[in-house]
């Protein structure tokens, strides 16, 4: 048994991003960021106070992937699982698990969409964390 040692605020404050894929858009250059940023790396000072919330649609393509065979305790039950970088249609890339997909079938360029899932749990007694994963788009 693992004891939990995180307080929920650490995860609660990420809910908009991890549940609903809300990133930010720079009010100056209109670049969309996910994960969200407080400052636009392009516009820097002129973006301050102009970063707007921006909800991404949750569709994109596999940019690269790996299949995990050795994982931390919290993910051990899921081995082998796919981790990919997904290039979202709006531009940003995210690291995520790919689910509902046979690891033998995963390919660069494959279209995927967001799926809301359980990500991990903090030991046997701590909080359960949810968030986005991605799955192949069925044709």
């Amino acid at each position: 048994m693992t004891t939990h040692y995180h307080l929920v605020s650490k995860f609660w404050r990420e809910i908009p991003h991890r549940y609903n894929l809300i990133g930010t858009r720079c009010g100056e250059c209109k670049t969309v960021y996910f994960p969200p940023r407080n400052v636009c790396p392009r516009c820097r000072r002129s973006s301050i106070g102009k970063m707007e919330k921006y909800k991404l649609k949750g569709k994109g393509k596999i940019y690269t992937y790996t299949i995990i065979h050795v994982a931390p305790e919290t993910f051990e039950d899921e081995i082998p699982y796919i981790i990919a970088i997904v290039k979202l249609d709006e531009g940003p890339m995210v690291t995520s698990q790919i689910v509902d997909c046979n690891p033998d079938k995963i390919k660069i360029g494959m279209p995927v969409e967001i799926a809301f899932r359980k990500i991990q749990e903090d030991g046997d007694t701590g909080a359960i964390y949810y968030g986005y994963k991605f799955r192949p788009i069925k044709r």
């Binding site: 994982a71 993910f75 690291t95 968030g131």
Partner: peptide
């Protein structure tokens, strides 16, 4: 947080 291990990151590069 999403299950990417450290070797996974270099594996993503390798792929």
């Amino acid at each position: 947080f999403f299950g990417a291990t450290f070797p996974a990151l270099y594996a993503l590069i390798a792929t």
